[in-house]
Simulated assay, not measured.
Amino acid sequence: MEEIRKAIEEKDAKKLAALLYYKVDELSDEELEEVLREAEKLALEAEDWELYKLVVYYYHEFLNVDKIGEFEEIAEKKGTFEVRFHLADLYFLIGELEKSLAMYTSLLEEEIAKGNMRHAGEIYYNMALIQEELQDYEKAYELLERAEKTFESLGDSERVMEVKVYKAYVRFEMGEPNVAKAELAKLLPELVGSGNGRLLAEVHLSFEEIFEDGDNYEAALQECLYAMLRAVGTEYYDVAFDALVDVLWQLFLEDDFSTVYNNMDMFAAAFPDLADFFEGVKKLALFKEGRIEEKELTEAIEKVKDRRLLDLLEFLGEAEL
């Protein structure tokens, strides 16, 4: 919350948007309402439509407040690419996929006619997200290939690499996990050399999903570890940590407690600031399997002081098939 308040005080719309993407789940309803009220003022003042999109979405998603009509009025009045692009993305976020696709299609025609290929590349990428959501993976892959060619023509190597990572993941969704793993592995040397922690984390999280889908939880946990390490210092760290919690939840659901307690020490060693939490997870798994008494579990949990981490321990403890 302190980071968010600081971004608001500094009127840093870009920083605030990035924080809201990854930190919104940590806010109480009262905190969220306060943040959204200030963020809305800042977004409209700065005409930062990415931030405004997030404000409208979180009002809709968490507080049941509908400001979509207000966004539509602004888009009609302003008529710029940026405001319409983010309105199309808002439609995607709230599940109005066909409406989003129709707006992107209209924008794409206009931007190509203007020769603005960077905008076209961004539209291709976002349209691929919609087709993936619709489970038309062939179409999603085709759109990503168009995005890749577009960014290549612009010499934007970072965006090209982002598209390639996404393309590999879509190959997995197309039912080709071995091809996906090979394509992801091919990207690793260049990404390691570039030091792009966020994209490296995305690659490892893609591997994690592939291994989890194949019930290879040992490998999935290892990939979560790599993803968290690569994401340290980036906004993607919370995404990587949440992916780990999802794998742990699945393991508790399946009563695979040994895989949990045999792997928590490596996380505690890699992330000493979270050592008490991982020790708590380990003790919870040992208790569930009947290997320790409740008193030992309670003593471990009492060492965890962070409220969010305590809630996660409670969440994992409630997992049942």
Rank of each mutant, 00 (worst) to 15 (best):
E70S: 10
F92G: 00
A75D: 02
K77R: 15
E38S: 13
E61L: 08
F62N: 10
A43R: 07
D48W: 08
L87E: 06
V56Y: 03
L87I: 08
K114R: 15
E31Y: 02
V55N: 02
A113V: 09
L108S: 08
E34S: 13
D89L: 14
L36C: 07
N64W: 09
E38V: 05
E34L: 10
A43H: 05
L51G: 05
A39T: 04
S28E: 07
A88E: 04
E31M: 03
Y59H: 13
E30A: 14
V55H: 03
Y59V: 00
L101Q: 10
E38M: 11
F71P: 01
E50D: 14
E70V: 06
D89Y: 13
E47C: 07
L107G: 04
E96V: 00
L44F: 07
V56F: 03
G69Q: 07
D89V: 11
A120W: 01
D66N: 15
K78Y: 11
E38A: 13
L32A: 03
A88Y: 04
I74M: 13
Y58T: 00
Y57S: 02
E98G: 11
R118F: 14
E34D: 15
D48A: 08
K78H: 10
G69P: 07
V65H: 11
V56E: 06
H86D: 11
G115W: 04
E111A: 06
A102G: 00
E70F: 01
K114E: 12
E98Y: 12
A39N: 05
M117C: 02
E61R: 11
V65D: 12
H60L: 09
G121W: 04
K99E: 12
L93T: 01
E110P: 02
A113I: 05
Y59G: 00
H119I: 00
L42E: 05
A39L: 05
E30G: 06
E40W: 08
Y58W: 11
E45R: 14
K99R: 15
G115Y: 02
Y59Q: 10
E111N: 07
I112R: 15
E82S: 13
G69F: 03
L90W: 05
K67H: 14
A102I: 00
K67D: 09
H86I: 00
Y57E: 10
K41N: 13
E47G: 08
L97R: 09
E33F: 10
D66Y: 07
F92N: 12
E33R: 14
M103I: 12
E110G: 03
K78S: 12
N116M: 06
I94H: 06
H86W: 15
E31T: 00
H86A: 01
Y91H: 09
E34G: 02
E50P: 01
A43G: 08
A120D: 03
E76R: 15
A46F: 09
E111R: 13
L108H: 07
G121A: 06
T80G: 09
L32V: 01
Y58E: 10
E34F: 14
K41V: 09
A43Q: 09
G69A: 04
G95T: 04
M103K: 14
S100K: 03
V65F: 11
F62P: 00
G69D: 12
K41P: 02
G121N: 05
D48V: 07
E73S: 12
F85E: 06
E30N: 13
V65I: 15
L54G: 01
L63T: 02
E76D: 12
E31I: 01
